[in-house]
């Protein structure tokens, strides 16, 4: 390669990788602030602030959803299988809200460790299956148990 081109190539690659390293350092310095939500473990460790709205995310614990019979009040437990946090919410839940699936609750963390949510978002996973296939898999699973 002729020296002039080589010089240009090295200069460009050095400049570009310098910027890349700077950006990545900034991102990792931001750390927790880049996260969209706090996990129940973060909240248990006291990482989440009490004085402003936070987002708490994780899985809805199986069997933890309790609905009020004469209002839209609902409470459920969000877990990351290490720690748990209880979320109280009044309003309509998204269609994909289900026990055992992901959820992000936006609201305020109370002194008692519970989250009073003003909004609940459902998080879905990267799995895409037709209902018949899932049913068949579940049937096969329960057949093998009994």
């Amino acid at each position: 390669m002729n020296p002039k081109r080589k010089q240009r190539l090295i200069l460009i690659l050095l400049g570009t990788s310098g910027v890349a390293v700077a950006v990545l350092l900034v991102l990792f310095a931001l750390g927790q602030n880049m996260n969209f939500f706090y996990s129940p473990s973060d909240i248990a460790q006291g990482d989440a602030p009490l004085d402003r709205d936070i987002r708490a995310g994780g899985m809805v614990k199986d069997g933890s959803v309790q609905r009020d019979s004469d209002s839209l009040r609902v409470s459920f437990v969000v877990t990351d299988f290490v720690s748990e946090v209880q979320v109280n919410y009044e309003g309509i839940l998204p269609d994909l809200f289900r026990e055992g699936d992901g959820v992000v609750a936006i609201g305020r963390l109370m002194e008692n460790g519970q989250v009073e949510a003003s909004e609940v978002l459902a998080k879905h996973d990267e799995t895409y299956m037709p209902p018949e296939v899932t049913d068949a898999l579940e049937r096969a699973e329960s057949a093998s148990i009994y």
Binding site: S39, K123, H124, D125, Y128, P130
Partner: peptide
């Protein structure tokens, strides 16, 4: 950053379905 955002940080967006290292968790009909 776009590619690994769903792995490095907590995001609402789900992780990638198509990966080079494992079979995609998507039914063949889709």
């Amino acid at each position: 950053i776009i590619k690994f955002s769903v792995e490095w940080w907590n995001t609402l967006h789900q992780p990638a379905t198509l990966k080079f290292t494992e079979a995609p968790p998507m039914h063949i009909s889709m």
